[in-house]
Amino acid sequence: MSDVTSTTKLEQAATKAAVMNQLPADKESLGQSPLHHADFASAAKRGAQKGGIHLSELALLGHLTLRCDAGNLEQLAAVEAILGVPLPLTPLTSVEKGAYSVRWMSPDEWLILVPGLEAFSIESQFRDAMPGHYSLVNSSGGSTVLMLSGDNAVELLQKSTTIDWHLSVFPVGKVVSTLFAKSTATIRRTDDQRFELIIRRSFADYIWLWIQDASLEYGLVIEA
């Protein structure tokens, strides 16, 4: 790697991590979300149209995990320049702007969701602009997003987690990582009765089964 020592500091930082566009040219036809085989599109057409639980999948989004120092103002400025929003520094909060959303995960960790096709471009911008010690990991293939809503959405979450979902302590925008049944999920409230669940790929079938089971008494409506 001796031939890179003449580059600038930022270029140097970029070359020291391997950045890779992980998407094929033919993204649309090849990609299979973790719940691809559940075929939500068909279920939305032929399944129940009324019920207390509504569920949809936001498949194939770009998931980027950022680790950096919340006290490093240069880093914070760089992030804001790239995403157009500042990192949420208050624990358990999130910010959203357009198609970008950022969730506080830990004092030095944030989960950024972007449109699937933009993941590599955002990652590259970080590699170009982000100073200091940080890590950025593309984890798009490792998880998927479920949107859960409806009159009984809170009850379903109560059956599945030990979190207090009362609006007075869990307002819109709050985000938690927690146990979901016997798996885990990162859950954000996007509206009074609407929640975003980010779940791990390998557990997706288990969680899908769990949600169907827990919805039985309310009725489950799949949305495409």
Binding site: A181, F203, D205, D213
Partner: peptide
């Protein structure tokens, strides 16, 4: 509770499980 039968223990699948 519901931690019985098919939900007794999560089964983790790879992308090629099907």
């Amino acid at each position: 509770g519901r931690n019985c039968g098919a939900l007794f223990e999560p089964e983790r699948y790879t992308a090629m499980h099907k």
